[in-house]
Amino acid sequence: MPSLLLVVFILQFLLHIINTVGASAVNELLWMLYNKLPTPTSGSAQKAQKLKKEIVQLKRELGNTSPQDNFSKWAKLDRQHNKAMADFQKIDGSLRTHQTTFTSAVSTLRWLGTQGLRFILQFWFAKSPMFWIPAGWVPYYVEWILSFPRAPLGSVSINVWGVACASMIALASEGLAAGWVLVTHKPTPVATEKKREKEEAMAFQADTRSGEKKEL
């Protein structure tokens, strides 16, 4: 059986990763992995990705084609673009319904496996010492703080150990991020990926809105 000290440390580490990357990013990653498997939505997800690429490609071709100089080609591309957009919106609407259910289930399981488990451990082992402090090392009031709320005096409680782990993980993470920026002169991979995903989402949403306006 793994040490309780290690279990608490791993829980705090997982919580730090989730908070750093973002719960929504974790949900999106799990949703992508779910659709890679032979699941009921995998076929629709692959078709949606194919249509998305097709829409972007058709949009570029439309931008490079003059409706005055080559109207027939422009009209053909416009019809293909509108059809692909309509098909994508239909599939995307169905996928979003499934994704909402999936995200709700994943969020519940993630909370139970991290925050929920942490609360249970803190309640169950509230009176159990994580380890003992040598007698006379710290004043009485420090011993009382370290044993808060119900651990034996002179020991470190599970609550205090959890706070210590979270603090050390946060400091180590900030140090690694600062070292990465100093060495590479680039933002961290997480920040770069978030920026790229945001730019792609904004570009595609703009294209989607323009397509909707055209239909109106």
Rank of each mutant, 00 (worst) to 15 (best):
A84Q: 00
K127F: 11
H98K: 10
A48P: 03
Y34G: 00
I10Q: 08
G116P: 02
V156C: 05
E193C: 12
L14E: 01
M168G: 04
G179V: 02
A166G: 04
S128D: 10
T114F: 01
T114A: 05
N27P: 03
E61Q: 14
P134I: 01
R60Y: 13
P187D: 03
G162A: 13
R110L: 14
Q80E: 15
I55A: 02
G154V: 05
F131D: 04
K198I: 02
G113H: 04
M130I: 07
S107Q: 11
N35G: 06
K127L: 06
D87T: 09
N27M: 12
I145F: 15
K127S: 09
Q12M: 03
K73G: 06
G211D: 05
Y140Q: 14
E61W: 06
A84D: 00
W132S: 07
L6Y: 07
Q49V: 12
I55Y: 00
S173I: 00
T39H: 01
C165V: 07
K73V: 11
P129I: 04
L4E: 01
I120N: 09
K213G: 09
V183D: 10
A105G: 09
S167C: 09
W137Q: 09
S155E: 08
A105V: 08
D87C: 09
I18P: 00
H185A: 10
I18R: 05
G113S: 09
K52Q: 14
I91F: 01
T65P: 02
S72M: 15
T103Y: 11
T101V: 13
E212I: 13
V181A: 11
F102A: 03
K186L: 09
E197S: 07
M32A: 14
S147Y: 00
Q12K: 06
A45K: 00
Q99K: 11
L58R: 02
E215H: 11
P134H: 04
S3L: 06
L58T: 06
Q46C: 15
V7Q: 05
H185N: 12
T188E: 02
E193G: 07
L62C: 05
W132H: 11
K198C: 04
G93F: 00
A105M: 13
L121G: 03
F102N: 06
E193R: 10
R79Y: 14
R79L: 15
E200T: 05
R96D: 12
K59D: 11
F102I: 01
V181N: 07
I158K: 04
K53E: 11
K198M: 02
V7Y: 03
A177N: 06
V190A: 06
I120W: 12
E174M: 09
L4W: 02
A45S: 08
Q99P: 03
L216E: 15
W124K: 11
L15I: 07
E54T: 09
Q57Y: 06
Y140D: 14
P67N: 09
K36H: 07
E54F: 03
L62K: 01
